[in-house]
Design a protein around this nucleic acid. Sequence first.
DNA 1: TCCTCAGGGCCAGAG
DNA 2: CTCTGGCCCTGAGGA
Length: 491
Amino acid sequence: MDLPDYNPQQPLVYNPGRYREDLLSLEGPSTSPELKTEPDGRPESEESCPICGDKVSGYHYGLLTCESCKGFFKRSVQNNKLYTCVEHQKCPMNLSQRKRCPFCRFQKCLAVGMKREAVRADRMRGGRNKFGPLYRRDRQMKQQKVFHHPLNAPYWMKMESTQTQRPTAPHDPHLMRNNPTAPLSFDALHHSHVHPPAVGHPGAPVPLDCNLNADRGLAPLSLPYSGLYHRSFPGYLQEKGEMPYGYSSATTNYQISDNSFTARSTPASSPCSTPSSSTRTPDAPSSAPLKPNFLDHLLEGEQDEGQLCAKVLASLQREQANRGKHDRLNTFSIMCKMADQTLFGLVEWARNSALFKELKIEVMTIVSQAGVTLSSLVSRTQDLVSKLKAFQLDRHEFVCLKHLVLFNPDVKSVQSRAQVEQTQERVNRALMEHTQQSHPRHSDKFGQLLLRLPEVRSISLQVEEYLYQRHLLGDLPCNSLLTEMLHTKHS
DNA sequence: TCCTCAGGGCCAGAG
DNA sequence: CTCTGGCCCTGAGGA
């Protein structure tokens, strides 16, 4: 089965209605050029620059690229170059044509994951940058991919590297921020890049290898919590001036921003960096009168769910396309990778949650439930999603539910249980007031929403249990945050 | 202390 | 003149 509309040289046209099919199609061989192999068995793709196909000379600004693209990227960022494309921003990019359109070349640099932040503002020579862990992990994963087929790799081997190397860099918080001050940062989860679904410039070409149709109103359905809330604020991002990942589709020019990346190291969406966070009173979260902007305060740390889904999809598509003919991920492996990357997103979200930062947690442990099957999980999850979709959640309700799931006083080893309960109560109150105000005719909405939470928790526990069983069988396809979490929780 | 390697600078060549 | 890209230097961090 071919990967729909995918060609490494052409942006992939994303059709939300085919999201599920896209994921399924990831299993089959892609239509991307067959990956040749070196005499020693290493995929040649490891030796070719993802931008132009030239020979790579090492890791540069976030990923393996050739010397030429390294220099081009460096000059572009250092000199704040402003390029324009005389064509349709879809110029082919290869060894012979890479010089023709610097606009498209720079686009592709960003799209494949080169990081402007890695170009040093102070121009200091030498040394190592903050992406060291990224390079190490990437290298490790590449090695593992080559020498150990994921599904054949022994369990202990996976655990060994899982425990020695935390998967950090590809999900660097800096790469996941919604940063309105960064006009041109495509950095995203694991080199994946998406068009902001709410930006609303239908005609604007998207310089990415995983494009979203501009009319994509609802998030894809394939992720557990996506598409649950109704977009009550179609222009939300625009109104707030937020352009996630810095992409401005309103212009065909790239304005390379200043190199003040150090000032942007704290995610702008982080409540700690916003004035409103100063109104927070960690000491008495429940006794403090509810600020009218409490819900907005919660929303400040929110990622767009559609973006998260699209990032995961783009990443998977890229990885699948880069795999050898006989090395393609099967459905379960794809699901595990989805879960892993979604987990990263959730962890990042939780870490950025001002409320969660107040917590002191030793180790997250869970209670196991046994005897689950994948089909029953899918069925239960689909039921839950259907119920939640029927509620047409708005962003405020959705973020409240997320916080209520996160702040679970039943989780062991939470040191300040009282604080968790207080926070839960506070969010509860905010949710109740919001539903009463925004849905006065639907007075029962608050209660109905709360009734869904036990099921959410129950399903999540079953999913964990199921994955752990597969994990013990050595089925989990890769070293990941997911396997690490499962191991930690069961150890 | 040495080695590795990624970012920066230099400069000849191309257009 | 600007841009490109290959080569070399630098120096933080790891062994």
